[in-house]
Design a binder for these strands. Structure first.
Lengths: 118, 118
DNA sequence: GTTCAATGTGTCCGAATGGACATAACCGCC
DNA sequence: GGCGGTTATGTCCATTCGGACACATTGAAC
């Protein structure tokens, strides 16, 4: 997961989808945990909200990013699809691009920014 | 101004400032028009809102991005400070970085995205 | 067939957001 | 001294967003 708490990147697509660190981390946690609710807990987010975000993401693509199933030994679960992993990887790549090649511009942008705004 | 309507970049700083295309365009229009209200009109935004955004930006830095004055022949006006121009330039540079070096990742992210989400 | 943990869904409410108006203050110019 | 266009600021309201609960559904394991 992106480990720079100082900045996050949000992309606004013309489909209406906005994709930022929240959804990216959620996808990653779902991948790691195999569960929407576990991912939500890690993000201190209600299951309701986590599920809504997943639904929103799935609805914006012609193939779902997350596959889920109910019932069974562990109650159910969720996994990233290949598309889901691809989307996550591309977002992380853009984040890294900014962090690395945009480091100077970002440093200048942060310089002189009040920690507690007026 | 950024001319790709399909995507916009929003940065979230830990100061609480969020800076995206709206504020960037606003700064640029103020620079070009010499007036907050003219810039707001160009963005089909009320003066109230344009002014609020300027105030928010100014409050997040230890030096203002926009200088303004009341009264006079033309009623008053506003100009970008050196800091304002620097901030705008750095944001544009990051936008360009994404557009150019992130083109492939962005293209993949857009691929398969429904124009009208479910 | 009961249990269990997770998915799936509905509803309600407070907070935040943004748009719409309204009004005051300013000051060079005529 | 009045005019005009701009900055500056307050208030109100509809919409949106998110958090908090509540509850039904699923299916393997026991």
């Amino acid at each position: 997961m992106s480990d720079d708490p100082r900045l996050s990147l949000r992309l606004h697509f013309d489909s209406g989808l906005t994709f930022g660190r929240g959804k990216a981390d959620l996808l990653q946690f779902i991948d790691e945990e195999g569960s929407i609710s576990a991912a939500g807990r890690r993000m201190k987010m209600s299951y309701r909200r986590a599920w809504s975000l997943v639904e929103e993401m799935n609805g914006h693509f012609d193939a779902p990013l997350v596959d889920s199933s109910r019932g069974g030994a562990k109650g159910g679960g969720a996994q990233l699809t290949a598309r889901g992993r691809a989307v996550l990887a591309d977002y992380r790549a853009l984040e890294a691009l900014l962090r690395d090649q945009g480091a100077e511009a970002l440093a200048r942008l942060r310089a002189g920014q009040r920690s507690v705004p007026v």
